[in-house]
Simulated scan of single mutants.
Amino acid sequence: ALQVYGSIQDQSTRVTVSICNSLLGCLVKNGRSDSTFKLYDEMIRGGLSPDLFTYSTLLSGCMKLKHGYAKAMELINELNSRGLQMDSVIYGTLLAICASHNYCEEAEAYFKKLKDEGHSPNLFHYSSLLNAYSVNSYYEKAELLMKDLRSSGLTPNKVILITLLKVYSKGGLFEKAKELLTELEASGFAQDEMAYCILIDALAKGGKIWEATMVFNEMKGKGVKSDGYAFSIMISALHRGGYREEAKKLAKEFEDQNATYDLVMLNTSLRAYCNTYDTESVMRMLKKMDELNISPDDITFNTLIRYFCKAKVYHLAYKTIVDMHTKGHQLNE
């Protein structure tokens, strides 16, 4: 897309708003936010007159920027200075930006302004504000928002209910979370592992490891397919709790049932095997990493180095350190 745009010679065509919007949207969708804003600045200097769709696209690019909220405010000020009025799409994106950068009060203010200007919030607006509440476990505000949602005639969807589950779980309201999980199951919204993982993770981090294990076993008993996320949470929780043999057993269970791994699951299993000095399984994981063409990260290298040193296999520890430095990683203190 950039090559095609670069080949356009006519300046008036280069700053046609539909062409610019398409290219900026392509860059945002591919995660190239920095390039998006640099190109936008060039387009402005070239004579582009942005429209609401331009700003909506650029705001979407703020979502994952480190200082995304500040950049979003610059764009909103620019939008206002050009005499444009924010629509419900712009408000929805702003709410999502506030949620992703933990600006809860600002999200509430934009939600109120949205309604004050005569717009009807949709499920995306509600889910974004609910997500903002989930960051700090504002469950009372979340429940009031749910009442407002239902009174507006909307029906909560899977995203809304799972976000509410996150609010309850992070807030330690485990009984409410379990009731909501039952509701998700009855609605057919718990056919993948995500809802279970939210509750399992919260229970484990709250020191309720055996309750987490019960939910995990219930999930498996209901035939819910795990891509490794639930296993990773449980193996890590068992390891933190000192249940290393149980962690190893669970890592082996996943290995027996799955041919594919991602880096997170591989590191989790590797740590479980290293902490029980299961050299055969450690080597099997390294072989699997090569077969699946997974590149090790800092966690992988440091896990292996600690293991080789404790096992007094110093030549392998040294070889791993050399390999680590060659690939641009640093040894932990």
Rank of each mutant, 00 (worst) to 15 (best):
Y314A: 02
H329Y: 15
H325F: 13
A311T: 03
D298T: 13
Q330D: 02
T303R: 01
Q330C: 03
I305F: 06
D323N: 13
R306I: 04
A311I: 00
G328K: 06
T300P: 02
I321T: 13
L304D: 01
Q330K: 15
T300W: 00
T326S: 10
K312I: 02
Q330M: 08
T320M: 15
F308E: 08
N302H: 03
H315R: 12
I305G: 08
T320Q: 04
Q330W: 04
A317L: 06
H315F: 07
H315L: 09
I299P: 00
K319D: 11
H315Q: 15
L316P: 01
A311E: 13
T300D: 04
D298R: 14
F308K: 05
D323T: 14
I305A: 02
T326E: 09
L304H: 01
D298E: 15
I299N: 09
Y318C: 06
H315P: 00
Y318W: 07
I299R: 05
K310P: 00
F301Y: 15
I321K: 10
V313A: 01
I305C: 03
H325G: 04
H329G: 01
Y318S: 12
T300K: 02
I321S: 02
K310F: 02
K310S: 09
C309Q: 13
H329E: 01
A317R: 04
K312R: 15
Y314W: 14
H329P: 01
R306F: 12
Y318K: 14
A311W: 08
K319S: 15
Q330L: 11
H329R: 08
D298N: 11
T303D: 05
Y314C: 05
H329I: 12
K310H: 14
K319Y: 10
Y314Q: 05
H329K: 10
K312H: 08
H325N: 11
C309E: 14
D323W: 14
G328M: 09
T303Q: 00
G328F: 03
M324I: 10
D298P: 00
A317C: 03
T326M: 04
I321E: 11
Q330A: 10
M324D: 06
T326I: 06
I321F: 02
G328L: 05
K327P: 05
H325Y: 11
H325R: 10
I299V: 14
H325P: 01
L316D: 12
A317V: 07
N302F: 13
T320W: 00
Y318H: 14
K310M: 09
D323F: 12
T303G: 04
H315D: 15
F308S: 06
C309A: 04
K327Q: 14
L304R: 04
Y314E: 12
L316K: 11
K327Y: 00
T300I: 08
K327I: 05
L304C: 05
K310L: 13
I299M: 03
K312P: 03
K319W: 13
V322G: 01
M324H: 08
K312G: 08
H325V: 10
Q330R: 12
M324Q: 08
T303A: 00
V313W: 05
A317F: 05
N302Y: 07
K312M: 09
D298Q: 14
K319A: 15
I305D: 07
R306N: 09
T303W: 03
I299S: 06
Y318A: 15
L316I: 06
T300G: 06
I305Y: 06
Y318L: 15
V322Y: 07
K327S: 13
G328R: 07
F301V: 08
Y307D: 02
I321W: 07
Y307M: 08
K312Y: 08
